[in-house]
Design a protein around this nucleic acid. Structure first.
Length: 428
RNA sequence: UCCUCGAUAGCUCAAUGGCAGAGCAUUCGGCUGUUAACCGAAGGGUUGUAGGUUCGAGACCCACUCGAGGAGCCA
């Protein structure tokens, strides 16, 4: 018997085929059993009619439980009643492995219960759709950089010190010294871009901060391009083209998944260049006009980001923040502000990109390191980059999970990564 | 770390300080077209932990544990 995947079912109309799948739900009606099957490539219903199968097979179809793995043989029939357009008229059902008391029933569950069963929750249709969108986002990122002459340069996970000096890092024993889990590959990409011109790294990132919000994980994935001979404005051009590409690739390739997630796709179709660009000072004006009294000179929190993003239906790039609220490595622009940019996603999804132009002058960089009470010795190799043919360069970091949350329309990043690591969750 | 709310059946939730309940899941029975199928029946409880108030506490008070949402910090 021909063994096929559900995704290919349309090629086998009126032919007898065999499917290997899991039973995600079942309904019965006397002499009929409706088996809801999924095999990872799709979902389809198999109809087991008492008159078409042996007594044993009909009894098995009656007893079979949720999430059992099965092998179903039958004829592919076209029907308008099914979403996929076909169903299986079963002639044989074999049990591969049963399933006793599957915990996730076809009913509502709370987030804690679902997170405790994350390894099983992934099987549900919505979670599978999220995994697929995440996959497409990551593929689009790699394709984009590959198509734009970038070289993937992997940054280390073990680092000897904090990259930016401010955030709390995970400390671990490294033989007879301490090592820290990377919070950013950026400094290494600054070294890499002097070798390959356009570099990017893509890997996990760790923050030990006790953040407990819908936008934070302790382990998350970040992609960080860094380009030699690039200024802040070219950096914004790159970020804009990059995000447009990712969003449109997802719209093009993940329509069924977005529909499963009940995402308003028209809002994503609208994400086309140019994106609005406003300065920090203009952002402050918008806030004041809307009754938020954040003083000029202070950084924005989640509330401020949301207020600003409400003014636009595309991601908004806020550039040239005050130097005092940004890390030591940012270049000071002619207007005295930091040559930096944050991209805020629409619909309240918050900051997805942070980046900017780096200080290439060794004296100015050294002054900033001392000003922020950082130890110059730990940055000796980083300062070397400014000693030997230093050039203007810029880059940014994009958080994968926040991007997945935005494109999938999720209220919390914990669903955007297969096995999330949160302040209070290390399992499963 | 701080603020707010919460913890009752496997799950989601009810229960004026006065008999511990429902839906789903499970088991059994019924139904030839179900779409979170439906109909009937059954089993299922140390009400998060430890104190206290009260004739009487799931409910009120105190502490702790765990969870949810938010703040700060950030992506």
């Amino acid at each position: 018997m021909k063994k096929i995947f559900i995704a290919d079912i349309k090629n086998y109309e009126n032919q007898e085929i065999t499917l290997q799948a899991w039973l995600y739900n079942k309904r019965s009606s006397g002499k009929l059993h409706f088996l809801q099957l999924r095999d990872g490539t799709g979902e389809i219903q198999a109809v087991v009619f008492k008159g078409n199968v042996s007594e044993d097979v009909f009894a098995l179809a009656d007893k079979i439980t949720q999430e059992s793995s099965v092998e179903v043989t039958g004829t592919v029939k076209k029907t308008d009643r099914a979403k996929i357009g076909f169903e299986i008229d079963a002639t044989d059902v074999k049990l591969i492995c049963g399933s006793e008391d599957y915990p996730i029933t076809p009913k509502e569950h709370g987030p804690h219960f679902l997170m405790e069963h994350r390894h099983l929750w992934l099987r549900s249709l919505k979670q599978k759709a999220i995994l697929r969108v995440r996959h497409r986002i990551i593929k689009s990122i790699r394709d984009f950089f590959d198509n734009h002459g970038f070289t993937l340069v992997d940054a280390p996970i073990f680092t000897p010190n904090a990259c930016e000096g401010s955030t709390t890092l995970f400390e671990t024993d490294y033989f007879d010294q301490k090592a820290y889990l990377s919070q950013s590959g950026q400094l290494y990409m600054e070294a890499a871009c002097a070798a390959v011109g356009k570099a990017y790294c893509f890997g996990p990132t760790f923050r030990a901060e006790k953040s407990k919000t819908r936008r934070h994980l302790t382990e998350f994935w970040m992609v960080e391009p860094e380009v030699a001979f690039m200024d802040i404005f070219e950096d914004m051009d790159l970020a804009e083209e990059f995000v447009e590409y990712i969003v449109q690739q997802v719209v093009e390739h993940c329509r069924p998944e977005l529909e499963t997630l009940e995402r308003d796709i028209s809002k994503l179709e609208n994400i086309k260049r140019p994106f609005p660009r406003i300065s920090y000072d203009e952002a402050i004006e918008i806030l004041h006009k809307k009754g938020n009294d954040t003083p000029n000179g202070e950084d924005f929190g989640g509330d401020e980001e949301t207020l600003i993003s409400e003014e636009f239906d595309k991601p908004v790039m806020i550039h040239h923040y005050p130097m005092s609220v940004k890390a030591f490595y940012f270049k000071q622009a002619e207007n005295g502000k930091a040559a930096c940019v944050d991209m805020i996603a629409p619909e309240g999804y918050g900051e997805i990109i942070g980046g900017g132009q780096r200080e290439e002058d060794i004296d100015k960089l050294m002054a900033k390191i001392k000003e922020q009470n950082l130890n110059p010795e730990t940055f000796d190799w980083y300062l070397d980059l400014r000693k030997y043919g230093s050039v203007p360069h810029a880059g940014f970091g994009l958080g994968i999970e926040r991007t997945v949350a935005w494109l999938c329309g999720l209220s919390h990043v914990r669903e955007t990564i297969p096995f999330p690591r949160l302040m209070d969750r290390l399992k499963p």
